[in-house]
Design a protein around this nucleic acid. Structure first.
Lengths: 229, 229
DNA sequence: AGATACTGTCACTATATAAGCAACACTATG
DNA sequence: CATAGTGTTGCTTATATAGTGACAGTATCT
């Protein structure tokens, strides 16, 4: 985890850019994205060109860049390597009530991506939508994972927005779980999976304050199952 | 697809190395892998160190390198970006008989990785196992995808082994589908998805030669469904 | 039409960066 | 004790890559 000798900056930055593009719904254009990321257009263009050459991105006719055919290979290989997705698929559908909302997600930068997502009334289980733009600080999963980071890291990530966030994260650390309120009145509880945390599991249900500890302990059981290989 | 100006070689090579490690079951050691890939130990070690620093890999206590916590984020984001996995999950379980073996896979180098895999008698659907080492030239999916490449590319990939493979691929191109025989006597049929092909779908069943065209047309319907966004 | 402000792209050159060498400390195996 | 392996790293040089400035192309204005 510590800084290695001669870290390859091209590789680090290139991966950042790949994920930045993959995370978005629409294809990106060179100069606007360059401004947003604080890179020169030349530099970004050469990264995008390289990733397109590798097949991970592809350039459209209007010269914007979106994900390319290679992303499926990347997805298949990383999925196989992840293990967590495999465990989620075999454990979660069986262990959860049909009217629960159950989600397993990770944070990247300030946003949440899902490995598993089950909402009541839907049949599909897999991580599905491009959920680009779902802000970590509004999601129970995001909050649970942010609370694992040092205050210093949060300040670097959220800059002036950190002030409002830090007390909330401290509260989460103290009580050991994150909690948000859905628009429909359901309560969402979230716990981290693994230590150090690599993902977080969330459960949303109708519940009263009195019932909360019982639901929490069920969630704890589920995370423990996900942690055991 | 053409060679860009100033392709970033560190990025290309770093991604290759990441996938090379992710594809394997066991953690890799620096010097043996360096020999295998034809790199100097120093260079490989610095790539691995960089990827570990990014969290995509992680160094074990015995100083070997395996996948790290970041692989889950990579998996979640690329899965969301893929789209193909999403369609597979919503289409394939409903459209296939329970005793079918159905798989959706991609090729990387000379090996096959799976996005979706359903074998009879199992309940889980998602791409699951680390299927490291499943050779493309022995898999119907692999053959279907290899047949899409130019002879010249195959020769570069397979070197002296290409001679035996090329006639078989030509046959696949002529008849429009790949076909292999399972150990249990079932016939596997495979078709490419998308054009240019980004993945291939395979279906294994007990069938006679007479029934084959009917099964093939069902497979064609499925691939067409996967292709429509 | 012309003018303005964008866009994506690239040749050129200098410099920051990564590769190679050689060596280190360490662990098995002979 | 020797030998051959391992992972790792300073130091130095070569080279791959970033920046500069410019190009052509395309909208949206006057």
């Amino acid at each position: 985890m510590s800084q290695p000798v001669q870290p390859n900056q091209s590789l680090l930055e290139g991966i950042e850019i790949l994920l930045e593009v993959a995370r978005r719904d629409e294809a990106v254009r060179v100069r606007p994205l360059a401004r947003e990321l604080g890179l020169t257009p030349t530099r970004l263009q050469r990264y995008l060109g390289t990733l397109a050459h590798a097949g991970l991105l592809k350039q459209n006719e209007d010269s914007s860049y979106g994900v390319g055919p290679g992303i499926h290979a990347l997805s298949a290989i990383s999925l196989g390597a992840s293990g967590l997705a495999r465990r989620a698929m075999s454990i979660l559908p069986a262990q959860c009530r049909k009217d629960d909302l159950v989600a397993l997600g990770v944070t990247w930068r300030r946003e949440v991506s899902y490995l598993y997502f089950h909402s009541p009334g839907e049949e599909s289980h897999l991580a599905l939508e491009k959920t680009a733009g779902y802000p970590a600080e509004q999601s129970a999963i995001g909050l649970a994972l942010l609370a694992q980071q040092e205050d210093e890291q949060i300040e670097r990530l959220y800059a002036e927005d950190a002030a409002a966030l830090l007390p909330r994260l401290q509260e989460i650390r103290d009580q050991g779980y994150a909690r948000t309120l859905q628009p429909d009145g359901r309560i969402t509880l979230a716990l981290c999976v693994g230590s150090p945390a690599i993902a977080a599991l969330a459960l949303a249900r109708q519940m009263t304050e009195v019932e909360l500890p019982a639901h929490l302990s069920q969630l704890q059981n589920l995370t423990r199952m996900l942690e055991t290989p």
